[in-house]
């Protein structure tokens, strides 16, 4: 068990290192922050002065070496735009991101499991058709569309929730709903498929033959067996949500490391970009580890390898 965890963490570190190297050089292929930093009228001398102040005038490999040796000590440098360490800029986005991911995944897994199970239980009937069509459709609704319309309806017309921001608990409702849309669609389909598979397998028929009620069969036996694919897909979606959920961040002015990454890319704030990548990388590695451990809890037959 411990060896497994150690192995996963090691390979995770390797991945993060690879990403950081790639991002470091890719980012520098997209031009320099200098031009963006100054108003149009800046002179060449002023731009060079700025460039020196941020060490951007040094050879690329030297910059890389400086970055690596500092990063090894946990120092990712100062943000070019914000007056704070890059690492702090990245970390400050994480609590909200993780909370949003957690809430959205909880909501969508619950809804999807309920809907998917109902659809499987009533397969081929009208209920099943309606659920499938609805969830497939919600999965293809553009996020910003849903976000803007829901602000218009629920915040501006009905005044039930605030338009934006991350303040009280009400302000979480629309962002969570928006990011849950897609996952609900996919997870419902996954649940339905897995449940149908399990329900038609031998041991459920056995259970039925032994006289267990159908509700009990659905929830005690079938769901437990259908859990693996659901967890697998949900885990993948959650990992994507950690560095995604950008539209929600932009429209609702919600904190999020996804937005921070895009912002850093567009502003060429290389230190913040690199710090964000490392932070996201660590979060995703840990998340994947947790998912693997959940596997074991749900289904002891899964060996750790």
């Amino acid at each position: 068990m411990l060896a497994f965890i150690r192995g996963r963490l090691l390979s995770g570190l390797l991945t993060i290192f690879g990403v950081v190297v790639l991002v470091f050089f890719l980012a520098r292929l997209t031009g320099s922050p200098i031009d963006l930093f100054f108003p149009e009228g800046a002179t060449q001398a002023q731009l060079e002065s700025f460039s020196r102040a941020h060490g951007l005038d040094r050879p690329l490999l030297e910059q890389f070496w400086v970055f690596l040796s500092n990063a090894a000590r946990g120092d990712f440098g100062m943000s070019i735009w914000q007056q704070r360490p890059a690492l702090q800029a990245a970390l400050s986005e994480m609590p909200a991101t993780l909370m949003l991911t957690f809430l959205a995944m909880t909501v969508s897994v619950i809804i999807a499991v309920v809907l998917g199970t109902i659809a499987a239980a009533f397969r081929f009937r009208l209920v099943d058709r309606i659920i499938t069509i609805l969830t497939l459709a919600t999965g293809s609704i553009p996020h910003f569309w849903f976000a803007l319309v829901s602000i218009l309806v629920f915040a501006i017309i009905l005044r039930l929730v605030p338009t934006s921001g991350a303040g009280n608990w009400q302000s979480w409702i629309l962002p969570v709903a928006t990011v849950s849309l897609g996952p609900i669609g996919i997870l419902t389909q996954v649940t339905r498929g897995a449940m149908i598979e399990v329900l038609s397998s031998g041991f459920v028929r056995n259970a039925r033959a032994r006289g267990f009620g159908s509700t009990r069969i659905l929830y005690r036996h079938a769901l437990r067996n259908a859990a693996l694919p659901i967890i697998a897909v949900a885990g993948d979606i959650a990992a994507g949500m950690v560095n995604g959920a950008i539209i929600v961040s932009v429209v609702f002015a919600f904190p999020g490391i996804g937005k921070a990454i895009i912002g850093a890319v567009l502003a060429r704030d290389f230190p913040v970009l690199q710090a964000c990548i490392v932070v996201v990388g660590i979060a995703v590695v840990l998340l994947n580890l947790i998912i693997d451990l959940i596997y074991v809890v749900v289904d002891p037959r899964v060996r750790l390898s």
Binding site: A155, I156, P162, T163, S164, G165, V250
Partner: peptide, 18 residues
Amino acid sequence: YVYRAEPSVRAGMIQTGE
């Protein structure tokens, strides 16, 4: 001071008194 990237959200905040 708060920041809202979406123009319609900024206008909405005036309407709701936010």
